[in-house]
Computed example of a mutant assay.
Amino acid sequence: MNLRKNVFYLLTLTILMFTSCSNDDDDKGDAQVLVTVVSSDNKPLSNEIVQMFDEKTYEEFKKDNRITPTAYVLTNSKGVATFIFTHDEWFGSSKDRFFTFAVQYGSGTENYEIWSSGRTIRSGSVTQIELKLESL
């Protein structure tokens, strides 16, 4: 009976060890963000420039919409721009970061439109965002 108990405890500890290790690895993976850009009637818009701003550049962008984005990606034929955030480059020792994604027509103080969405992105996650360009 004692042997059964010991084997049971050993198996339980082994399972817990592997479960906890896999959760740590998930937090250290690359994050993927899929930004879908659609028209006001929900049709995907291809070849749209989706800008990405990290925390610092977004603060600058709020003051001056002519600021250069941290990164940008063109939407594909299905209206999707895919951003890949490698753990080492974008997250370092933190598990998540806040990024803002935007489509912008024009710039300056007049005659411009901006559609944007900010999200907290976790390392190792896949996030989907939709930007609906209402006035088109």
Rank of each mutant, 00 (worst) to 15 (best):
M52C: 13
N42P: 03
T86N: 11
Y112V: 06
D88Y: 05
G124R: 01
K43D: 13
K28P: 13
F18Q: 02
V126E: 15
I84V: 15
D26S: 11
T36F: 04
S77W: 06
E113I: 10
V38Q: 03
E130M: 09
C21R: 13
Y58K: 06
E48W: 05
R66K: 07
D96A: 12
I129F: 03
N47C: 02
S125Y: 07
E48K: 15
F83C: 03
K95H: 12
R97V: 08
E130C: 02
I84P: 05
T86Q: 05
E110A: 13
A31H: 00
N42C: 08
E89H: 07
G92K: 04
E55A: 09
Q51L: 14
V73Y: 07
A81C: 03
G29A: 05
E89S: 14
E55H: 12
V35K: 02
D25S: 14
D41Q: 15
Y112M: 12
R122Y: 13
K63M: 03
G118W: 03
E110L: 01
M17P: 00
S94W: 07
S46F: 07
T19I: 11
L34S: 06
E130G: 02
V103Q: 06
M52T: 00
W90E: 11
T86C: 02
S46Y: 10
Q32T: 13
I129T: 00
Y112Q: 12
D64L: 09
D26C: 08
T120I: 14
V33F: 02
T86Y: 03
S77A: 15
V37K: 00
S40R: 12
L74E: 11
I114M: 04
R119A: 12
R119G: 09
S93Q: 10
V38C: 09
I129P: 01
Y72M: 05
M52A: 02
Y105K: 09
E60V: 12
F85P: 05
V37R: 00
Y112R: 01
S77Q: 15
T57P: 04
Y72W: 03
P44N: 05
K78G: 14
S117F: 04
I49Q: 06
K62Q: 15
S39V: 07
E89K: 13
Y58R: 02
G92V: 07
K43E: 14
E113D: 13
I84T: 13
A31P: 04
I114V: 13
F18C: 09
D96C: 06
N76I: 07
T57Q: 12
S125V: 04
G29M: 06
S93I: 15
D64K: 01
V103N: 04
A81H: 04
D26W: 11
M52K: 00
G106E: 12
Q51D: 10
S22R: 09
S20F: 05
I114T: 11
C21M: 12
S39E: 02
